[in-house]
């Protein structure tokens, strides 16, 4: 179970970081989401992975560590709010700057292919 779990966390982190390094805001936001999933899973496992552990005192002999669950809940709430904020900010940037590139302008290499359509749709706003 540990191997599968850690492989999942690793894969999510790798995908998250790859997307985070992209130039457009949408992949960046998706990357942040994946990264926060990976982190939440990782945090959840920090108390050790317990099978069939009880949550109520007296129910069983083995208990799951309750603290990581509380930490993950906090992290999920914060991460969710932050992602929502990042989405709104990305849309605002698209409206203000006329394109969805993280730097607010499309690098010159791509300009030939994409600027013409984008700047036109940006001006319409």
């Amino acid at each position: 179970m540990e191997a599968v779990f850690s492989a999942c966390v690793g894969l999510l982190t790798a995908c998250g970081i790859y997307l985070l390094l992209r130039g457009r805001t949408f992949p960046v936001v998706v990357g942040l989401t994946l990264l926060s999933y990976a982190v939440n899973l990782f945090l959840f496992s920090s108390g050790g992975l317990t099978l069939d552990g009880g949550t109520v005192l007296g129910a069983t002999d083995i208990y799951a560590d309750p603290l990581p669950q509380a930490l993950v809940l906090t992290a999920i709430v914060i991460g969710f709010a932050m992602t929502a904020f990042a989405v709104i900010l990305a849309m605002r940037a698209r409206a203000d700057l006329g394109n969805d590139h993280v730097d607010g302008r499309v690098p010159s290499k791509q300009q030939a292919s994409s600027t013409s359509t984008e700047s036109r749709s940006g001006e319409k706003r």
């Binding site: 960046v28 982190v39 945090l43 920090s46 932050m82 900010l89 990305a90 605002r92 940037a93």
Partner: peptide, 25 residues
């Protein structure tokens, strides 16, 4: 402000993920 804000938010969100990872460790 929008341009600076986008960089600031994304960087700090990534840093928060790193902070949580280190707390987990």
């Amino acid at each position: 402000r929008t341009r600076a804000g986008l960089h600031y938010v994304v960087l700090n969100l990534a840093a928060s993920a790193v902070f949580l990872t280190s707390l987990g460790i």
